[in-house]
Amino acid sequence: MSTVHETTLEIDLKALEHNYKFLRSKLAKDVELMGVVKAFGYGSESSEVAKKMSELGVGYFAVAYTKEGVSLRDDGITESILVLHPQSINFQEIIERCLEPSIYSEYVLREFIKTAEKLGQKDYPIHLKLNTGLNRLGFIENELETIFDYLNKTSSVKVKSIFSHLAASEDWREREFTLQQLGKFRKMAFKLFENLKYRPLLHISNTSAIINYPEAAFDMVRSGIGLYGFGNDEKINKNLKPIGTLKTIISQIHHLAAGESVGYNRAFTAIEKTKTATLPIGHADGINRQYGNGRGGVYIKDQYAPIIGNVCMDMIMIDITGIECEEGDEVILFGGPQHATKFATSGNTISYELITGISQRVKRHIIK
């Protein structure tokens, strides 16, 4: 008897609690842990995940874009929310919904101050993003004077934190570069301290840095992928529990004779009698075409069944020859017998891309 009756992503909040406690155990008591819940909670369910983290003691959340923060507010999340990549068109909404912007360039700083002054704000919390080598977003060292010029002319905003982002904290081959980033961050942060006359929070560590660079915890760390059960390292993965299990069912079973083909472009042709099953999940659900033609596979009753033929928009076909199963039986794509990292690797990608790509049309079931 199936435990699911349609394609479902099960989200285990007990696993989330386990991961939080593991990461928390690596930190000093006075270091805060910011929960990153962008991209629908890394493809899970951001509001339920945030509510669970709040119960566990997380007082700060991070999202990528304003819309994600607004959604959390609409669902009753009252904790501080950092918007990592805000756009100027959303600045008024950010203030109206009590979100906190990352300020990463002179343009963003100037435009946010304009909006804050227009709305009569005083000491509105902002977060200064420093570029220490990742070279995506952030102020570089010779722009610090520009920050001082703007901040010294307004009382509308106040710096809540200064932060940066490590480029390769999971890769020991890049240890020298990571240490250079940390040194640059300290140098730039203390220049800011001297001018601001107060001390904002400092944070630079992501999940891998929590484990590999404990000296870089500063006042707060940011964990995203680790809370969801992935550590970028096999040794770390053993201490974490993935919170998501993607399941579906068998829609129909076919018995092919030698020479019969399966799916679009006849990408699979049986060379002998073959039993196949069609599953109601496809690339519109996040199982992309690179998993087809024998590269990826699923599990039925703990037995592996390769994906055959081309992945369709709404369906995949699998080879179930030799597996005792029936229409309606449960199928597991990742979670349980198959770690999401293993499934992702079969498609030459990473767990981040796989789990965040699960479509919102896939049913979410929260296991509390």
Rank of each mutant, 00 (worst) to 15 (best):
Thr321Gly: 13
Ile243Trp: 08
Glu260Ala: 11
Lys114His: 12
Thr269Cys: 04
Asn348Gly: 06
Arg73Ile: 00
His127Arg: 03
Tyr213Leu: 13
Leu134Thr: 14
Ser47Arg: 07
Gly328Glu: 07
Gly226Cys: 05
Asp233Leu: 14
Glu106Lys: 13
Ser54Ala: 14
Gly43Phe: 02
Ile350Phe: 09
Phe177Ala: 13
Ser164Lys: 05
Ile323Trp: 02
Lys191Val: 00
Asn206Trp: 01
Glu353Asp: 13
Ile318Asn: 13
Gly292Lys: 00
Ala189Trp: 03
Glu48Ile: 06
Tyr104His: 12
Arg289Ile: 02
Tyr198Thr: 06
Tyr264Thr: 06
Pro242Leu: 06
Ala116Phe: 02
Glu215Ile: 15
Ile358Leu: 12
Pro242Asp: 03
Ser44Trp: 00
Tyr107Glu: 15
Ile281Met: 07
Val157Asn: 15
Asp171Cys: 08
Pro200Lys: 04
Arg24Ala: 07
Ala116Gly: 04
Ala39His: 01
Pro200Glu: 04
Ile89Met: 12
Gln87Gly: 15
Ile250Glu: 11
Ile355Arg: 10
Ile253Asp: 14
Val83Glu: 04
Glu143Met: 02
Thr146Lys: 05
Gly183Glu: 10
Tyr65Asp: 12
Leu354Val: 10
Met1Val: 08
Arg110His: 08
Val331Gln: 00
Thr132Trp: 08
Thr132Glu: 12
Gly76Asp: 08
Pro214Trp: 02
